[in-house]
Design a protein around this nucleic acid. Structure first.
Length: 849
RNA sequence: GGGUCUUUAGCUCAGUCGGCUAGAGCGCACGAUUCACAUUCGUGAGGUCACAGGUUCGAAUCCUGUAAGACCCACCA
């Protein structure tokens, strides 16, 4: 025997992977329809999490399946430099060494992080291999590879000349801890309890005061106006006049702006253009000065001496105290409002005015919306298309500047003599360049990671340069996590359409968040993180793959279920043992041919495997992976192992056994690549690898023969059931009369039903197996027969209820006239067979009674 | 404020176009077991499909509303 007695995945999985790689099975064959999936590049700064196990299992199933179907399939792997994410990790490392980013230049830091990531990246790639990911490693793209940077710069230049990229002074989301700005999408809002303070500003041209309401009193130090609604009668005559800003004693105008809600607060709003997005816009409309009062460290500047250098929170307290003392406070009110936080460190985001690079989004979004609405990209689940379009419609300009050293440098230079003169240039390794006698200095910011990863499909396939993989663009499927629909999928569609004129992929499949076993979100701080590598060492890679896709539907946040992983491990063990049985029967070296079914069990198993194969194809085509796996699980376990293998112990047809196992291995391969390959290799029936084999061939069978076996199964099941209801554990004899199905299969029936004996009799006696409708009895004693009477009565009641229900349905004229004819016919047949059952049960009770 | 999703067995979840007695895994109960596998085999119990209406010959499935929960978006100072 080549197959060991026990199934021990950890002993063979690494070798199997090495075998695939050295045989080059993951390379596109150049034959067939191109089928491509590009891996969402995992962050190169750490370990894979369980979400990767789910995503990569689905991606790998699709690619392996399509390869077996004869497509020219490729799975392009990647690694993400993950700009800000990695920077956060590295900054922590610096912190541990007692260093800070300010101890080094941008170029030095870039080099350090490069080394750091280079070390980490290998781990991630090994982990993907452990998951069985059949990716074409030679085509791996790292998001800082030269070709990525070249393409990204090409896009930047095109956008620049198309007027889609501009540099502007805007309110940006700024994290004072990480000292960088963010895109809107990177800010996490949380609802917090706070207070709405009312502050009196003395009027200059009238007697009295105007009271404003604010949640951020400290920002009053930067106020440059008060705004009221133009239709607000209360303030009408104040419009155009001035008020005095308390504590600062600055004269500020009272302006009218539609933005102000008359019904909220006092109807008068203090305007701080430098630190609030709405105030900034009002400031633009009314030509107000912008005074920055919070610096990049989150401390106060440009304010009266007593507040300079205070943090925002301290400043709030001191301002309130001062206002109280000078009697400007006019009350406070408890409210709830949402506050933006840095999604990495939780620090409160400070909106502040900065000059940054922005992408004009609406021209890009419009084209993406059109493509989505025309169905050029399909979504699973389908509703996500609507959700994405709604997002795109509201999309505002995108801040792509990041004040961190780790990332792709922004390819722009500024005239040292004219700050408004910017030029595009890719010589970002030089701090200064001279163009036509003018000196320009480098922009020190880097690009938002999503700006480059948003171009992933056409970069990885070398589509723009027309490389070897160009035919794989657009990709067939983008499989990724549902929570990056906006951040990534949206940008890939927009940039793909912009740069290539076509959508980057035909289908988007989104998987949901994997929660812990109790349905809670996993997090390091809760300590409930499931490590996929531990699951692999415990149960095997195949088991994790199947266990994690089982019972899971698209984009649904669902708990990790270790029970499913165990069940999948047991399934692998079942496959293993089917193979061991077959090996023992037929040996290792032999050829696999399309067999000719002989016994009715042969015909039946051919039918079952054929049906399952077709069903799995449909289910994969509809992205129903959990159901496809369930189909596989049941055909292998229930049909093949529990019935066909058992039947073959009575009558062995070796060619058929070989074909059945071969078919199971092919069907199972996309789901359980390691164990199927291990068996395939151990048996030596083929010279190739199952990873390169084709999807199972269909084998002809006779439906009548297959149906005969189904009838036999029914008889066996009834015999088992009736015997389990009988007292004691005796083995019974089955008696049969004029019944050729039993007569021709006495040994099969005896063995499957665990009977003592199966023999023919002239006169009926004992307990009739009524349900299966065969001419068969269990040879039981009078007492047992009598005890069994109640069971028969119970079944008779059930059968009569069923018959009444069917009769009622058929008596309903509207059912008969309006329901589809085949359903009506089906009901008639059911009624007939139920009536037959009732008759047999009544006879049986007569005999006993 | 707007939107998306979820609610089915003790637990975690499937259930496609509305159509057989609503399924799976785990768990539970009873039984088996030298002959591929205790990572096994057989049998069974367990469900008011969240709730209330409606449409239909027929609803877990479609419509309306209610409740509970999850998530996303949004500038309400």
């Amino acid at each position: 025997m080549n197959l060991a007695k026990t199934y021990t995945p950890n002993e063979f999985e690494p070798n199997i992977y090495a075998m695939w790689e050295s045989a080059g099975v993951f390379k596109p064959t150049g034959q067939g329809t191109p089928y491509s999936i590009v891996m969402p590049p995992p962050n190169a700064n750490g370990n894979l999490h369980v979400g990767h196990a789910l995503g990569s299992a689905i991606q790998d199933i699709l690619v392996r399946y399509h390869r077996m179907k004869g497509d020219d399939a490729v799975y392009i792997p990647g690694a993400d430099h993950a700009g800000f994410e990695t920077w956060v990790v590295y900054e922590r490392e610096l912190d541990k060494q007692g260093k800070s980013r300010f101890d080094y230049s941008r170029d030095e830091l870039y080099a350090q992080v490069w080394d750091f990531v280079d070390k980490k990246r290998g781990d991630m790639e090994l982990q993907l291999r452990a998951l069985g990911v059949g990716a074409d490693w030679d085509d791996l793209v790292f998001t800082l590879d030269q070709k990525v940077i070249d393409t990204v710069y090409g896009t930047f230049e095109k956008m620049w000349s198309d007027g889609l990229i501009y540099r502007g002074e805007r309110i940006v989301n700024f994290c004072p801890k990480h000292q960088t700005s963010f895109a809107d999408i990177e800010v996490e809002y949380e609802t917090e309890k706070s207070k709405l303070w009312k502050i009196a500003y003395p009027l200059l041209n009238h007697i009295g005061e105007i009271v404003v309401a604010t949640t951020r009193p400290e920002t009053m130090l930067g106020d440059t106006a008060i705004a009221v609604n133009p239709n607000d009668a209360r303030y009408a005559k104040l419009i155009g006049t001035k008020a005095l800003l308390p504590l600062v004693n600055r004269e500020i105008p009272i302006v009218a702006d539609e933005y102000v809600d008359m019904n909220y607060g006092t109807g008068a709003v203090k305007i701080t253009p430098a630190h609030d997005p709405n105030d900034f816009e009002i400031g633009q409309r009314h030509d107000l000065p912008t005074i920055q009062i919070v610096d990049i460290n989150g401390t106060m500047m440009n304010v009266p001496d007593e507040f300079v250098g205070l943090s925002v929170d301290e400043s709030r307290q001191r301002v309130l105290e001062a206002l109280e003392k000078e009697e400007f406070l006019r009350g406070e009110e408890s409210i709830e409002h949402s506050v933006g936080h840095c999604y990495k460190c939780g620090t409160v985001i400070q909106p502040m005015v900065k000059e940054q690079w922005f992408v004009r989004m609406q021209p890009l979004a419009e084209k993406a919306i059109a493509a989505i609405e025309q169905g050029e990209v399909a979504f699973t689940p389908a509703n996500k298309s609507k959700v994405l379009v709604a997002y795109l419609r509201e999309l505002k300009d995108w801040n792509i500047s990041r004040q961190i050293p780790w990332g792709i440098p922004i390819p722009a230079f500024q005239n040292i003599d004219d700050p408004t003169d910017w030029i595009f240039d890719t010589r970002v390794d030089q701090q200064e360049i001279v163009v036509n006698g003018t000196t320009y200095k480098r922009e020190e910011d880097t690009l938002d990671t999503w700006f480059s990863s948003g171009q992933w499909p056409y970069i990885t396939t070398d589509y723009l340069s027309g490389g070897q993989l160009a035919k794989f663009y657009p990709n067939q499927v983008m499989e990724t996590a549902g929570d990056i629909l906006f951040a990534w999928v949206a940008r890939m569609i927009m940039l793909g359409v912009y740069r290539t004129g076509q959508v980057p992929f035909r289908h988007v499949y989104l998987h949901g968040l994997v929660l812990d076993e109790h349905g809670q979100k996993m997090s390091k701080s809760k300590g409930n993180v499931i490590n996929p590598m531990e699951a692999i060492s415990q149960y095997g890679s195949d088991a994790l793959r199947m266990g994690i896709i089982a019972s899971r539907s698209a984009a649904q946040p669902q708990a990790f279920n270790a029970g499913k992983v165990v069940a999948a491990r047991n399934f692998c063990n079942k496959l293993w043992n089917i193979a061991r049985f077959v090996e023992a029967q037929v040996g290792q070296a032999r050829s696999v041919q399309l067999p000719e079914p002989q016994s009715m069990a042969d015909h039946w198993v051919v039918r079952q495997l054929g049906r399952a194969g077709t069903l799995i194809e449909q289910q994969i085509a509809e992205y129903r992976f959990a159901e496809a796996f369930e189909t596989l699980y049941h055909v292998v376990w229930d049909d093949v192992a529990d019935w066909y293998i058992e039947a073959s112990k009575v009558e062995t047809h070796t060619d058929m056994l070989v074909w059945v196992l071969d078919t199971c291995l092919r069907l199972a391969h996309p789901f359980a690549p390691f164990v199927t390959e291990t068996i395939w290799q151990a048996l030596s029936w083929h010279d190739d690898l199952v990873a390169q084999a084709s999807y199972p061939s269909v084998c002809a069978y006779n439906e009548l023969q297959a149906a005969e076996f189904s009838r036999l199964k029914k008889l066996v099941a009834e015999a088992r059931y009736v015997m389990s209801e009988l007292p004691g554990n005796d083995r019974y004899t089955l008696l049969y009369g004029d019944d050729s199905l039993i007569a021709e299969n006495t040994e099969l029936v005896r063995r499957l039903a665990r009977l003592k004996e199966v023999k023919s009799v002239d006169t009926a006696r004992g307990l009739r197996l009524a349900a299966s409708g065969r001419d068969a009895w269990l040879d039981v004693s009078e007492e047992v027969l009598y005890e069994h009477q109640t069971n028969l009565e119970k079944r008779l009641v059930e059968a009569r209820a069923q018959a009444a229900k069917l009769q009622g349905r058929l008596d309903n004229e509207r059912y008969v006239s309006q329901a589809p004819a085949h359903l009506v016919e089906e009901s008639r047949q059911q009624l007939k067979s139920t009536q037959g059952l009732i008759e047999r049960l009544v006879n049986e009770l007569d005999v006993i009674g």
